[in-house]
């Protein structure tokens, strides 16, 4: 049986280190809705690869610095 992965993210931390960027600002810069950013931050939605890259681009970091994964047993 394939292992289950859980996507984790550091968006809250990255927003904090980007002058406490608001979710609305991040949403506008990444081309998504504020609700989607809230859902991603809360672990209620895993973004597409494209949106993940766009979010990383907003913070000027690599995707793996924004998103990671944990293996669920």
């Amino acid at each position: 049986m394939p292992k289950k992965f859980e996507i984790t993210n550091n968006i809250r931390k990255l927003r904090f280190f980007s002058n406490e960027m608001t979710q609305q600002e991040l949403a506008e810069k990444a081309g998504a809705s504020r609700q989607t950013i809230i859902a991603i931050e809360g672990g209620k939605y895993s973004p597409s690869l494209e949106l993940a890259f766009r979010i990383a681009d907003v913070f000027g970091v690599q995707v793996n610095e924004v998103f990671g994964y944990e293996i669920k047993e």
């Binding site: 609305q24 949403a27 506008e28 081309g31 998504a32 809705s33 504020r34 609700q35 989607t36 859902a39 939605y45 973004p47 597409s48 494209e50 949106l51």
Partner: peptide, 10 residues
């Protein structure tokens, strides 16, 4: 516009 935007999640 920002409130009513429809994106990939929607």
């Amino acid at each position: 516009g920002a409130e009513m935007i429809e994106d990939e999640r929607d």
